[in-house]
Design a protein around this nucleic acid. Structure first.
Length: 119
DNA sequence: GTTGTGACATCGC
DNA sequence: CGCGATGCCACAA
C-alpha cells in the first residue's frame, strides 16, 4: 500500500503526536488526520501531500506509544477503528464504549457527535 | 542484500 | 452510501 516516507525527525514527531493525543478528553475521539493537522508540516513540504502522509505518520507513532497515552481515542476519518489486528480492534472498541461512545450498525462512530473540538 | 509490510485520506463507481 | 483502487517508501527480520 503505501507511499510512506518518515518524518525528518521521527522521534520528535512521535512526541508531538503523543502530547496531542493525551489532550483528548475521555468520551471524545480524534482522527489521524486531525492530529496531523495540529502539527506543523516540515518546511518545504507541500500541504497536500502532508495531509495523507501526516496521517500515516500519526498512525505509526501510535503503533508504539507510552502507557499514559489514550491511544483508543484516535480513529480514521470514516469514524472507524483502523486496527488490522482483530484482538486489538476489539479492545479499542471496548475501551471506547466504556467511555460512553456508541457505535452504529456499521461499526462506525458518529464523528459529528464525538469528535474532539481541538483548539 | 532481499523481502514483507504497514493505527490513512480521498476520489471514483 | 459503501466498497475498491491510488499514492509509492522506510524499516525490521
Amino acid at each position: 500500500m503505501p507511499g510512506y516516507i518518515s518524518p525528518p525527525d521521527p522521534a520528535a514527531y512521535r512526541q508531538k503526536v503523543w502530547a496531542l493525543v493525551r489532550q483528548i478528553p475521555a468520551g471524545q475521539v480524534a482522527t489521524y488526520g486531525q492530529i496531523a493537522a495540529l502539527i506543523p508540516p516540515p518546511s518545504g513540504m507541500d500541504p497536500h501531500s502532508y495531509l495523507s502522509l501526516g496521517a500515516r505518520w500519526v498512525g505509526s507513532a501510535m503503533a508504539s506509544c507510552p502507557e499514559d497515552v489514550p491511544w483508543q481515542r484516535v480513529i480514521n476519518s470514516q469514524g472507524k477503528i483502523s486496527l488490522s489486528n482483530p484482538r486489538a480492534a476489539q479492545e479499542q472498541r471496548t475501551l471506547l464504549e466504556s467511555e460512553g461512545i456508541l457505535f452504529d450498525a456499521h461499526d462506525r462512530i458518529d464523528l459529528s457527535r464525538y469528535r474532539w473540538q481541538s483548539p
